[in-house]
Write a protein that binds this DNA or RNA. Structure first.
Lengths: 199, 199
DNA sequence: GTCTATAAGCCGATAGAC
DNA sequence: GTCTATCGGCTTATAGAC
C-alpha cells in the first residue's frame, strides 16, 4: 500500500527473525525447557511482538516445526553417472543420506520430534509424512527403477537400508553410542549394499 | 534396631513408592514437563518427603533412570530347542526382541532418553552401555557361537539386524509412522533373516 | 506493530512443627 | 521421617502507551 515492496514490508522480515531465534532455542532446550523470554532474547524482539505474530507458545512451536519439516523434506540431489556400477550409485546415495542426517540441525530436530511426540502427535505425524516417508520413497523408487539390481521387495529393502542408517545415527550421535562402540559409517553402508545386492 | 524387619522399615517402602510415582510422571511428561507437585500427588507423599529422599529434582530423575536402565538391561530369555533350524531360532529371537521393545514402558523410556540426551548426556551414556550395548552383544554372541549360520561379520550383522528392528519401533510407535505406512513386524524379521543367512 | 510494565499463577526448594 | 505453610523467582500471557 506504500512505496515499499508489497505487503507489510518489515513484518515478514521480523517474522522470519522470530522464527530463527525460536528454532535455535526450541531445538536446543525442547518445548517445556524453552521460555518465551529466551526466544525474545534470541530473536532480538520483545515478547509481545512474538505473541502478536504467533498467538501463543504452541502456535510458535508449531510454526517452527512446520518450517523445519518443509526444509528437511527436500529431496536428495543424486547426480547419477550412467557409467557407475549399481553398487557405486547405492554407496553414493547411502553416504549422502548419512551425511545429511549427521547435520546438527537435523539431529536436533529429530531429537525434539521424538521427545515431544506424545505432547504434539500431529507434528510427529507431519514429520513422518514429510521427512521419513519421502526418504523411504526415494530409495524405494530407485530400487524399482533399477530392476538390474535384482531386488525382489523394494519396500522392505528400503526399510532395512534406511532403517539401519537412521538407527545408526540415532544411537551413535544422539545416545553417544559412538563413545562406547565407535564405528565408521562407511563400513555399515558397504555391508548393507553387499547384503542387499547379493541375493 | 527395633522389632521390625531390619533397617528403616517403612523408609525403603516409601522410597519405592516415590520412585513408582516419579517413573509414571517423568516418563509421560519428560523432565521439564514434570513438576515436583505432580510427582508428590502421583506418589501419595508430600514434596518434602521426596526432597529428603532424593535431594533435588535432578537427583530424583537420575534415580529413576538408573532404576529403569537396570531393569531393561535384563537379558532376553532364549529357550533354544536344539532341533530348531537356525532360521527358526533367529526368528524367535527377533520377535522376542521386538515384542519387548513394544512394551509401552520401554517405549516411554526410549523417548525420554532421546529427548533428554542433551540435558543429561551421562544418563544417555548409561542407557547406551546397559541397554543398547547388551542387546547388541546378545546377537553378536549368538552369531559367533553358531558358525554354521555362515555369518562373516557378527558385529556388523548385529548392527544391521538390531538397528533395523529398533528403527522400525521408533518410527512405527514413537513417530506414528504406522498410521502412514503400516507394516507387520513379522515380515521385517523374516526378510532380515533371509538377507543375513543368504550369503 | 512494537515497546514497557505488570498481572496471576506455577516452579523448585525450604523452614519449622511434630 | 513426614507433615503444613511459605518464599522468591520465573512462567505464560496481557494491558496500555506510542
Amino acid at each position: 500500500m506504500t512505496t515499499e515492496t508489497g505487503i507489510l514490508p518489515g513484518t515478514q522480515a521480523k517474522r522470519q527473525q522470530i522464527l530463527e531465534g525460536a528454532i535455535a532455542t526450541f531445538l536446543q532446550h525442547g518445548y517445556e525447557g524453552t521460555g518465551m523470554n529466551q526466544v525474545a532474547d534470541a530473536s532480538g524482539v520483545t515478547k509481545q511482538t512474538i505473541y502478536s505474530h504467533f498467538g501463543d507458545k504452541e502456535g510458535l512451536f508449531t510454526a517452527i516445526i512446520e518450517e523445519l519439516t518443509e526444509f528437511h523434506a527436500q529431496e536428495l540431489p543424486c547426480p547419477i553417472s550412467p557409467n557407475d556400477s549399481p553398487g557405486q550409485v547405492l554407496r553414493s546415495l547411502g553416504q549422502r543420506f548419512l551425511r545429511r542426517q549427521k547435520d546438527p540441525r537435523y539431529l536436533a530436530l529429530l531429537r525434539v520430534m521424538i521427545g515431544e511426540s506424545e505432547r504434539f502427535p500431529e507434528l510427529a505425524r507431519l514429520f513422518s509424512r514429510k521427512v521419513i516417508a519421502r526418504a523411504m520413497e526415494a530409495f524405494q523408487t530407485y530400487f524399482k527403477q533399477h530392476p538390474e539390481l535384482g531386488i525382489e521387495d523394494p519396500d522392505l529393502t528400503a526399510r532395512v537400508f534406511v532403517g539401519s542408517l537412521v538407527n545408526f545415527i540415532v544411537q551413535q550421535e544422539l545416545l553417544y553410542y559412538k563413545e562406547i562402540a565407535p564405528f565408521e559409517m562407511e563400513r555399515l553402508v558397504d555391508y548393507l549394499i553387499k547384503l542387499i545386492l547379493k541375493q
